Simulated scan of single mutants.
Amino acid sequence: MATLLHQITKEIEEKRYELFDINKRYGLLHSKTIQCSQELDKLLNQLFKERHVGMWF
């Protein structure tokens, strides 16, 4: 479980940097920025779910 949380956290950090870079290049409302933001949202939701499930076991 700890390694999965670590991996998800690492992916979130990488996606955040990618999002900042894409936003700088294309702007906030560009489809690439929105897509990357949605991917980051999925990772954050995954982290939340893993942490939430871990609280009950």
Rank of each mutant, 00 (worst) to 15 (best):
I34Y: 02
F48N: 13
R16G: 01
E39D: 15
K32T: 09
L44G: 00
T9E: 10
S37V: 01
I34F: 04
F20M: 09
T9S: 12
M55K: 06
L47K: 14
L29K: 09
E39L: 07
T9V: 00
R25M: 01
L29R: 05
K42I: 12
I12E: 01
A2T: 12
K24H: 04
L28T: 11
L4R: 13
K32P: 00
H30D: 15
H6F: 02
R16Q: 13
G54C: 07
R25T: 01
H6N: 14
E18K: 11
Y17F: 08
R25K: 06
T33L: 11
V53P: 00
I22A: 03
L44R: 06
D41G: 08
T9D: 14
S37R: 13
F20A: 07
F48V: 06
L43N: 03
K49C: 03
G27H: 10
M55S: 05
L19T: 05
F48P: 00
L29F: 10
L47I: 01
Q46P: 01
K15H: 14
N23Q: 08
L19S: 06
I22G: 01
F48E: 14
K10S: 10
S31V: 10
H52A: 11
G54P: 00
R25G: 00
K42D: 15
K15E: 15
H6M: 03
L5P: 00
T3C: 13
N45I: 08
N23I: 02
E14I: 09
L4N: 04
F20S: 09
N23W: 02
H52T: 09
L5D: 00
F57W: 06
R16I: 05
Q7W: 12
H6V: 08
K32A: 12
S31D: 10
Y26W: 09
E14F: 05
F57K: 10
T3N: 14
F20T: 05
K10L: 07
T33I: 11
C36H: 00
Y26P: 00
